[in-house]
């Protein structure tokens, strides 16, 4: 990649940051250049972000319709999946899956709620509600 080909088209997922890339200058030396972003990166990052957003949105609808607990929504809203939530809380996956059932989630002990809330970076009251 030559210096004049370093993408400067902008990438909204960078949030105003510029990233360092390596490219060849006119003299043939490879140097660090700051890039405003490449559309390719924006496309694949947005795809990943969008996927997580849609999982959270589905979980929110399920919570509103009483099909799932708010825990599932918050798990996706925090960009986690079942495996990561299990690792972060030390609670087995099958138990977490059970806690996705609203009637079981409603009966959770304060200690259990606190474990989830801490792993998700929330207050317990937030965890029990949708935003």
């Amino acid at each position: 990649m030559d210096l004049q080909n370093v993408p400067q088209e902008g990438n909204k997922t960078l949030g105003g940051y510029r990233k360092a890339v390596y490219a060849r200058d006119a003299g043939g030396h490879i140097v660090v250049a700051a890039s405003n972003g490449w559309e390719v990166e924006e496309i694949v990052t947005s795809q990943a972000v969008e996927e997580m957003r849609s999982l959270a949105e589905t979980a929110r609808q399920n919570a509103i319709n009483g099909l799932s607990s708010t825990l599932e929504y918050w798990m996706y809203a925090r960009r986690m999946d079942l495996l990561l939530l299990a690792q972060s809380t030390g609670i087995w996956r099958w138990r977490i899956r059970r806690h996705f059932r609203p009637e079981i989630f409603a009966r959770l002990s304060p200690g259990m709620l606190k474990r989830y809330a801490e792993a998700l970076g929330l207050a317990v009251q937030q965890l029990q509600r949708l935003p």
């Binding site: 990649m1 890339v21 490219a23 390719v40 496309i43 990943a48």
Partner: peptide, 14 residues
């Protein structure tokens, strides 16, 4: 898309 994220997005210098 995930392959490209690992290749370009996660700080690789291109």
């Amino acid at each position: 898309g995930h392959i490209i994220r690992m290749q370009e997005e996660i700080g690789t210098g291109g």
